[in-house]
């Protein structure tokens, strides 16, 4: 029951975090190159133009399901890290290009966070991104108000500035816990 509770994300109970040095690389291959178009019509690859770390999620801008929890979380993590002088870019790659176009993504993403980047593209370009992160999506049900609701991979991926996956973040953590994970990978001595 996400719709009524997305705003409650920050109220999440804390999840114990390990106070440990930077973890080893992921034990499985994940991520890769993509070439898509953002909500302003500009090309964007997996690399951040400013070499910022990136929080990457696959969803859709008007999603009433998991995206309504994960994307506000990404926005909150972005703010939490900014308060510690660390810039990260929240990025969403659409799994619903029929709904998320260059013309339609900007407004809902701006509502989430001014730094939010939404990416769409043609079928081949999107499939390349989905394949790189092994993201599948299926029609879950049709909501009378929101239309098609898709079930899809819901992990948040932490990428470095070059677009290399550093770790995964469950979308159910609170912002402080998720920010702490990011810092583990990006702090100078982390």
């Amino acid at each position: 029951m996400l719709r009524p509770i997305a705003a409650g994300l920050l109220a999440c109970a804390s999840v114990a975090q390990a106070d440990s040095p930077r973890p080893a690389t992921l034990p499985f291959a994940l991520g890769g190159a993509y070439s898509l178009t953002d909500q302003h019509g500009a090309h964007r690859s997996q690399a951040d133009p400013q070499n910022h770390a990136q929080l990457l999620f696959f969803g859709y801008a008007n999603c009433p399901g998991i995206c309504s929890a994960a994307m506000p979380l990404m926005a909150d993590v972005t703010d939490a890290l900014a308060a510690r002088d660390m810039a990260v870019t929240p990025v969403m790659i659409t799994i619903d290009p029929a709904r998320d176009t260059v013309d339609t993504m900007a407004a809902p993403l701006a509502d989430l966070h001014p730094a939010f980047v939404g990416l769409t593209g043609d079928t081949a370009a999107l499939q390349a991104a989905w394949r790189a992160f092994s993201v599948e999506h299926n029609l879950a049900y049709v909501d009378p108000e929101h239309g098609p609701v898709y079930s899809h991979g819901s992990l948040i991926y932490l990428l470095d500035g070059a677009g290399v996956v550093q770790t995964i973040i469950p979308p159910v953590l609170d912002a402080a816990a998720a920010a702490q994970i990011v810092l583990t990978y990006t702090a100078p001595n982390g």
């Binding site: 973890p23 690389t25 034990p27 499985f28 291959a29 992160f133 092994s134 993201v135 599948e136 991979g153």
Partner: peptide, 22 residues
């Protein structure tokens, strides 16, 4: 996720990986 998880299952047995599962 199907491909990822197939990949995960495939990679789990690789002993050289630093983050081995239990």
């Amino acid at each position: 996720m199907r491909q990822l998880l197939s990949l995960l299952s495939c990679c789990l047995a690789l002993p050289a990986l630093a983050s081995e599962g239990t």
